[in-house]
Design a protein around this nucleic acid. Structure first.
Lengths: 119, 119
DNA sequence: GGCACTGATGCGCATCTGCGCATGTGCGAG
DNA sequence: CTCGCACATGCGCAGATGCGCATCAGTGCC
């Protein structure tokens, strides 16, 4: 009755990856097969398939056979809306950071966990 | 100009954890100090501090000293809205799964990656 | 000053993730 | 039936995550 958090965390973890966010970005513009997606994203096909498998298992996307290709599509449009909200949050945060940096002349918070400079 | 996905992934990863979702749940009902939060969540204080530090570094929460306590609060209310959208997505998915299971008598998808039965 | 309290940080460990790589599987064409 | 194409899956490894534990740091009070 409370492990709804676990499930929600699974979905959010499935979204917490730049590659998968890019997948959502492309699928938000309409269904697409794996090959085309791999081509657009410049990503290895097995790697893409792994991401798609994960997103399938969490109920974010689903695939349907079309001849020998498989067309993937987003299941729930609210995923895109939620991502849009998140994006707004980020833009506001960046603006806030830029503002604080401009007025104080230094970075206000988060010395550890660089956040942006990863990988 | 495209690593906005990286930043967004950082935030979503920061939300992709049941403990941190619970933190958001409590903070959504008003600011709270660490001790009270640790008490409500039945979690070790150092562990809670680590979660809070991560959420601080991603700009989800912020803390302010109040005497010798520190009151944490959510920075952007849209985080809660996004989580609400996610919750709707999940409820719809669960309903869809239950429906498919009832009509077909078996689980329709995701044999691997059990999703719910982790840890 | 010393002390108690509140919170943050460092360390070590088990586990999970993401990737490249090789290989397996389902489909259509000949 | 066999071949080639489109995806999926298994394996192994480097790096990241979450936790318990001990310890450090800031604050108020005596």
């Amino acid at each position: 009755m409370d492990d709804i958090y676990e499930i929600q965390a699974d979905v959010l973890r499935a979204l917490g990856n730049a590659r998968r966010l890019e997948i959502i970005h492309w699928l938000a513009q309409g269904p697409c097969d794996v090959g085309t997606l791999a081509d657009r994203m410049a990503i290895a096909q097995p790697n893409l398939s792994q991401h798609l498998a994960l997103m399938r298992s969490t109920g974010i996307v689903e695939g349907e056979r079309r001849g020998r290709e498989i067309r993937y599509r987003l299941i729930d449009p609210d995923i895109v809306r939620a991502c849009g909200l998140m994006r707004g949050v980020i833009e506001r945060r960046v603006a806030r950071l830029a503002d604080a940096t401009r007025t104080t002349g230094s970075v206000p918070l988060a010395p550890p966990h660089s956040t942006t400079t990863q990988r």
